[in-house]
Design a protein around this nucleic acid. Structure first.
Lengths: 233, 233
DNA sequence: GTCTATATAATGATAGAC
DNA sequence: GTCTATCATTATATAGAC
């Protein structure tokens, strides 16, 4: 009688083991990782990988879809979150560290998985802001989609940038690193989100005049300008 | 009689021409560009590059220092600017497009030139915020250095992220692309910087209580408590 | 200083034995 | 299904002719 050590080592087909090894190797070494390194991690030879997947590019495609599938499975049940919240949650799950780092790398390189991930985060942010707006916690924007896009790209991009300053990304401590980065940006983020940075409305109003939008309108510029927004003290 | 075509083609030593060709090639193709490609662009052979620079890594180092030198020469005379302003200014100068893209790539990959560039932008942002605070245009922060770091990394990281979504970066239109991205984020940026995102102070105050900082104080908490200062170069 | 020719290593992919 | 052996390509770097 045999005791199953870990599901990933025995229950899976060789194809799946190779694919998982590839995701790990791509996460650790980047997408320049060689098929020989992947083969070594999977405990097979390089030739077998070509036999199963045809080419490295094709293997990469299958890794993309698997990683997106895992991400959707995790996010499926949960409610909408801010970008930083999402990152923190993902970083907590050490089991999914390869998937998480794979996605980060893919976002950084403009890969297919990264683009899907980014667009999904933007959609989540739009929904999150709409909910918050309804409950009165989030201010209305003159262009909610542009604001959501801006918030996601700057949050995610900022974290990615600080991660790239780390000399080497180890899968074992990527969670701790992301948590540390998020910790460090929490105060300035909250400050800016609640109080802003500028003291008066001069620059915003000048811009609105410049693009032909009367200052003080918080509705989307394309539709009828309805509500006027009160200036904060 | 001979007409000098361009200064870079005749006035410079072969070493300098190779170095400039390398900067262009690294900007266009990324740092994976081969020495043969660089040699072709410089109009020499690959062997000559090794003869002059010893190794590709060493050539890279010299490109780094040259690019940082150019950046400092440009920024030397000007006054302090916000990150987005700096990016726009740099993107305007088509002559310096190779340097600009080289720096962006280096920032994205955590290269030496990128780290220096980033740290310099952070120092500029600290000075810019301090000036603005004195003139009453910028709100004080509880941790000015953390805020400056946050603003620079999120602005620059966000632009980098959106650039990486571009399928290919052409040196010829990188200026236009950056300008388009900056245009698209101007409204949400101004909105957030002047009005914030959240409607009440709940989250900020809760956080301040959590970290033991009494709410309502906008004085710096960094002088006594917080983190070590980054090395400036 | 500059080039040609070559050494050496690593890559993705193929062919065929078992 | 899996492996061994090999090919073809490309990379950096070296040696030596001119």
């Amino acid at each position: 009688m045999r005791i199953a050590p870990r599901a990933r080592d025995t229950d899976l087909t060789t194809r799946a083991r190779i694919r998982n090894a590839a995701i790990e190797e791509f996460a650790i070494r980047g997408f320049g990782a060689s098929v020989r390194e992947i083969a070594a991690r999977a405990g097979v030879t390089a030739g077998l990988i070509t036999h199963h997947f045809g080419s490295k590019d094709n293997l990469r495609v299958e890794c993309d879809t698997e990683v997106i599938r895992q991400y959707r499975a995790i996010k499926g049940g949960g409610s909408a979150m801010s970008p930083a919240q999402s990152m923190s949650v993902l970083a907590e799950l050490d089991e999914y560290a390869p998937m998480f780092v794979y996605i980060l790398r893919s976002v950084r390189d403009g890969g297919a998985a990264g683009i899907q991930f980014l667009e999904q985060m933007i959609q989540e942010a739009i929904a999150y802001a709409a909910e918050g707006e309804k409950s009165g916690l989030v201010r209305p924007s003159r262009d909610p989609e542009a604001r959501a896009r801006y918030l996601v790209t700057s949050s995610l991009g900022g974290i990615l940038l600080q991660l790239s300053l780390q000399p080497q990304l180890d899968l074992a401590d990527v969670g701790a690193t992301v948590r540390r980065i998020v910790d460090e940006i929490t105060l300035p983020t909250l400050e800016i989100y609640t109080e802003g940075v500028l003291t008066d409305r001069r620059y915003l109003d000048e811009y609105l005049l410049y693009v032909g939008d009367p200052p003080g309108t918080a509705a989307t510029s394309s539709t009828t300008t309805s509500q006027t927004m009160e200036t904060t003290s």
